[in-house]
Amino acid sequence: MCYTGSGGTPKSTEVNYYENGKIPWLNSGELNKTFIISTTNFITELGMKNSSAKLFPSNIILMAMYGATAGKTSIVSFETTTNQAVCAIIPNDHLLFHYIKFSLDNMYRYLVNLSTGSARDNLSQDKIRDLNTIIPAERTIRDFSNTVIILFNKIKNNHIQNQQLSSLRDWLLPMLMNGQVKIE
C-alpha cells in the first residue's frame, strides 16, 4: 500500500557536504508541524552522494522515527532529503494520501507506545510498514480525498503566506526602528 524510505546524515565535519548546499535536508525535530513548507538546512550534491541521504519527492508523508517526536507525521511540500531518523511514506495510490496521513495521526498514541522500551524512543521502517489500517471503498476514499485536498491546500497556502508575512515583518521592522522608513 505504501513505499517507505529513510535518509541519512552527511558527515558533519566535512564542510563540502553543507557549505553552499542547495538540497533541502530535514531532521526529525522539524516534524512538529502538519505542513513543512521550508527548511533552513541544506546539503550539497557531494554530501548526498557520499551519504545515505536520498531525495524524496514533494507532497509525501514524513514520520519521525526517533526521540521526542517519534510517531509525529508531517506533509512536506517540496523535494527534500532527510536524516536517518525520518521515514518517508509514499502511498502507491495518491488517492490514499490524505487518508493515510489521518490514519497515522490517529495511531500516534499507539506509535508512542510501540516506540518505547529502549534507551531512546525508536520506531523502525519495519514497524511502520507493518501497521494495518482499514481502507474504505474506493468511492468513499475518492469523496474523502476530493473534500480534504481543498482544505489541505488552503491550510498549506495560509502557512506559505504566514511565512512570507513573517519575512516581510523581519525585513521591515529594523528599518522602522532606525528611522529608514516612516509610516505617514
Rank of each mutant, 00 (worst) to 15 (best):
N41S: 14
Y66R: 06
Q161Y: 12
N41Y: 02
D130Q: 14
N158M: 08
K33V: 02
N113E: 14
Q125K: 14
M65S: 03
N106I: 10
L114I: 04
K11E: 10
T44N: 00
T133V: 15
L172Q: 03
P91H: 05
D126G: 13
H159L: 08
T116D: 11
A85I: 02
S6N: 10
S145W: 10
A70F: 07
T69S: 10
T80Q: 06
L95I: 11
I61L: 04
E79F: 10
G179W: 02
V112W: 03
I149Y: 13
S51A: 00
T80H: 09
K49G: 07
R142Y: 14
N113W: 04
T81A: 14
R142I: 14
A119V: 14
T39W: 01
G179E: 01
G5H: 03
N113Q: 14
N92Y: 14
R169D: 05
S6D: 08
F97Q: 05
K154M: 11
S51R: 02
I134M: 11
S51W: 00
F42V: 05
P136I: 06
I135A: 04
H159I: 03
P10E: 03
T82H: 04
F78A: 03
L151A: 14
V15Q: 15
K154P: 05
A137E: 15
H94G: 10
V15M: 11
E30H: 07
T116C: 11
P136A: 03
K22G: 11
Y110V: 08
